[in-house]
């Protein structure tokens, strides 16, 4: 049963990553690419859970915890960068 679950999870995550990769290549805006990265992040966490289920070791869940945190910081960084890139430099006064 656990093999079936990991199989479903891995195939779903890989398929989602492939689709997100297409969007990452197509763009057209930076925001689209950041959104595609969000899907990559979700797929990576799903794969970490699948690795954990497959091996029976909870250490891979620690990887997923780290991914959840790093992905958050990365998304915020990208969002700030996209927003800043759109505004004239003078508008970005220190707050």
């Amino acid at each position: 049963m656990i093999g079936l679950a990991t199989g479903l999870l891995v195939s779903g995550a890989v398929l989602a990553a492939v689709l997100a990769g297409l969007r990452l290549l197509a763009g057209p805006t930076h925001a689209d690419r950041v959104v595609a990265l969000d899907i990559f992040l979700a797929a990576a966490i799903a794969l970490a859970v699948a690795a954990s289920l497959g091996t029976g070791r909870p250490v891979f869940l620690d990887v997923a915890i780290g991914l959840a945190l790093v992905g958050f910081v990365a998304t915020i960084g990208w969002a700030r960068l996209v927003q800043r890139g759109q505004q004239p430099e003078t508008d970005e006064a220190p707050r």
């Binding site: 930076h30 909870p58 620690d62 915890i65 958050f72 890139g85």
Partner: peptide
């Protein structure tokens, strides 16, 4: 397993609104 899974879910739930809020603002500007 339970506390790790719960922690992942809690991190996702706590960080998603902020990330999506900032990304939505950036997308609106762009």
């Amino acid at each position: 397993w339970a506390w790790r899974l719960g922690l992942i879910l809690a991190f996702l739930m706590a960080t998603l609104p902020i990330a999506s809020h900032l990304l939505a603002r950036a997308a609106v500007v762009e």
